[in-house]
Design a protein around this nucleic acid. Sequence first.
DNA 1: CTAAATGCAAAACGTTTGCATATAG
DNA 2: CTATATGCAAACGTTTTGCATTTAG
Lengths: 145, 145
Amino acid sequence: MENRIENIKKQLHSQSYKLTPQREATVRVLLEHEQDHLSAEDVYLLVKEKAPEIGLATVYRTLELLTELKVVDKINFGDGVSRYDLRKEGAEHFHHHLVCVECGSVTEIEEDLLGDVEKVVEKQFEFDVKDHRLTFHGVCKSCQN
Amino acid sequence: MENRIENIKKQLHSQSYKLTPQREATVRVLLEHEQDHLSAEDVYLLVKEKAPEIGLATVYRTLELLTELKVVDKINFGDGVSRYDLRKEGAEHFHHHLVCVECGSVTEIEEDLLGDVEKVVEKQFEFDVKDHRLTFHGVCKSCQN
DNA sequence: CTAAATGCAAAACGTTTGCATATAG
DNA sequence: CTATATGCAAACGTTTTGCATTTAG
């Protein structure tokens, strides 16, 4: 936890960004909700509990910054909001998601299932893959009745 | 072309929807731009050339309807707009995309690369896969210099 | 000290909705 | 004829922006 914050602090400073209390509070919220898929509004409300003076615009600006630094990934499941998902430390690629069309639950898959597929794409389409987004839509275990 | 429209007409009628001139014009635009990834606004402007009286709201309502009928897929590449992509006739699954981070071009991959991956997901996570979304981000052939 | 960041309110944006009118079947 | 669809304008929710003020480094 603390060392991850330290890490992010270094990343910020290396590009002459500052680690403000608001940014730190935002990062802490993200770390504490690592498996969730929070919207900007969600993050705002959670940060507000600890740092009540923060403004929604600052949260948006911070999330944008963290996306740029690849600390988080900005994702979109088709409802009208962007969601923000912390990257696992050192993860090269974005993880995958299973979205249940019945209950709306979102499950994360950490393991990279796309190694072979990426090779095909690189060869066949001469496309230099940098990252991917993979989401499955279907029915989750507990909704299968 | 004409038979695809006829087909869609039948699908509409089977659920007591009507094939209005506005809907037909919208479908024709989608058919004429099969490889593009048009936003609602894009579609609106193109339809307007042929049917100038159409309203943007009608385009939105038509695209929503076609999404429900699985004639098109609504996709989101992370810019703020939804895009609409015609399904290949009889396609069970949504096709994949290669998005170039340099020039923004979008290439479609028709062949299904995820057969094996889906089997893993079904077994390992007991998740009943209905559809998927797969997008690769990287550098396309012509930007690799 | 000064460049960078903040909070606020206003604006912008894509999308949806209410409603009176028109029309496909 | 009637349920369904339309066009328009207003409303909506999310995200961005301008600006005067504050602050981390």
